[in-house]
């Protein structure tokens, strides 16, 4: 069962990274719970979570947004979404998720992460199978990014 309160570390971690590292304006939309398959953006970063919380965290955005974010992180223009840009976007997902995982530890959930996977292409559909996704829509000054947190938590005694 998804615990809505435990999404707070992800929201906080995303805000910290986006505002402090990218220095972009961030506006959060309404959180929503989804069970259907996710129609993803053109660029997606998936991070697996295992341990006392398990599932997947997805970061989805358009290629244009991904190129703009990568450009800020790399410090030079990114005309083509190549290997270095892909790595920069993956690392953004990795850092946000890792910091959120540290936050989850404060709630008493210890977990490990897998290295990030980038899934790029138009019309990609991603399923988190039987785990509901809590979607955090973020409007950035460089475009839109959706964070889907599909985790189930081991009940604590």
């Amino acid at each position: 069962m998804m615990k809505a309160g435990l999404v707070i570390p992800f929201v906080e971690s995303a805000y910290r990274f986006l505002q402090e590292e990218l220095r972009v304006e961030v506006t959060r939309g309404q959180l929503r719970l989804e069970s259907s398959k996710a129609t993803s953006g053109e660029v997606n970063v998936a991070i697996g979570v295992a341990g006392e919380a398990e599932g997947t965290v997805l970061y989805s955005m358009s290629e244009k947004t991904a190129k703009q974010i990568a450009s800020i992180l790399i410090g030079e223009p990114v005309p083509v979404f190549g290997q270095l840009a892909e790595s920069a976007i993956a690392e953004m997902g990795n850092i946000i998720t890792a910091q959120a995982a540290a936050g989850l530890e404060d709630y008493g959930f210890q977990c490990n992460l897998t290295p990030p996977t980038v899934i790029a292409g138009k019309g990609v559909v991603i399923s988190t199978v039987d785990i509901q996704r809590l979607v955090i829509p973020l409007e950035l000054s460089v475009g839109f990014m959706g964070i889907s947190v599909a985790l189930r938590y081991l009940s604590k005694k």
């Binding site: 690392e91 998720t97 890792a98 910091q99 995982a101 540290a102 210890q110 992460l113």
Partner: peptide, 8 residues
């Protein structure tokens, strides 16, 4: 040098 700041 890591993104993981978990105490453990």
């Amino acid at each position: 040098v890591t993104a993981i700041s978990q105490r453990s």
